[in-house]
Simulated scan of single mutants.
Amino acid sequence: MKKKMVWLGASVLAVAAGIKHQAKKKKQSVSSLMIEQTLKQIPIFPDVRKPKEYQKLLEKSEAGYTLPDYVRSMYNACESKELKNTIVIKPKNKVSQRTIFYLHGGAYWFQPMVAHFRMLSKLAESLEAQIIMPIYPKAPSYHAEDVHKMVAQTYDEMLEKVAVDPAHLTFMGDSAGGGLALSFLQVLKETKKPMPQRAILLSPWLDVTGMNPQIRSLQKKDPMLPNDRLSYCGQVYAGALSTYSPLVSPLFGELSDLPPIDVFVGTHDILYADAKALEEQAKEEQLPIRIWSYRHMNHVFVTYPIPEAKEALTIIKNLILS
Rank of each mutant, 00 (worst) to 15 (best):
M224T: 15
N227R: 13
L241A: 02
K220W: 06
I215T: 15
V187P: 00
S217N: 11
P194T: 10
G177K: 05
G179K: 06
G210N: 07
F184H: 08
D174C: 00
L218S: 01
V208N: 01
Q219L: 12
V236T: 08
P204H: 01
S203H: 07
S183F: 06
G239Q: 05
T191K: 10
G234R: 11
K220A: 14
G178W: 04
L218H: 02
A240K: 13
F184G: 13
T209K: 01
P196S: 14
Q197E: 14
N212Y: 00
D174L: 01
Y237F: 12
P226A: 00
G210R: 09
S217L: 10
P223E: 11
L201Q: 06
N212Q: 08
S175A: 04
K221M: 14
L241Q: 01
T191R: 12
S231V: 09
V236R: 04
P194W: 03
Y237A: 04
M195N: 02
A238Y: 03
A238C: 14
Q219F: 05
C233G: 13
A199L: 02
K192H: 13
L230W: 07
Q186D: 09
Q197R: 13
N212F: 03
Y237C: 06
I200V: 12
R198N: 14
P194N: 02
L182N: 14
L202T: 03
M195R: 03
L188P: 07
R198K: 08
G177V: 06
C233N: 00
V187T: 11
L218E: 06
Q214L: 14
L202I: 12
G178Q: 11
G210E: 12
L206N: 03
M195V: 08
T209A: 00
Q186P: 15
Q186R: 10
K220I: 05
D174P: 07
Y237R: 08
N212C: 10
R229Q: 15
S175W: 01
Q214S: 12
R229C: 10
P194I: 06
L225K: 03
G239A: 06
P194M: 06
A199V: 04
D174N: 15
K193I: 12
M211E: 13
K192T: 15
T209R: 01
P226Y: 04
A199Y: 04
Q235N: 10
P194A: 05
A238V: 11
M224A: 12
P213C: 14
S217W: 09
L201M: 05
R216Q: 15
W205N: 05
L230E: 10
Q214Y: 08
Q235Y: 11
L201R: 11
P196H: 14
A176L: 03
P196I: 13
A176M: 01
E190S: 12
Q235L: 15
V236L: 02
K189F: 00
G178H: 01
G179R: 12
G173Q: 01
M211Y: 13
Q235D: 15
P196V: 10
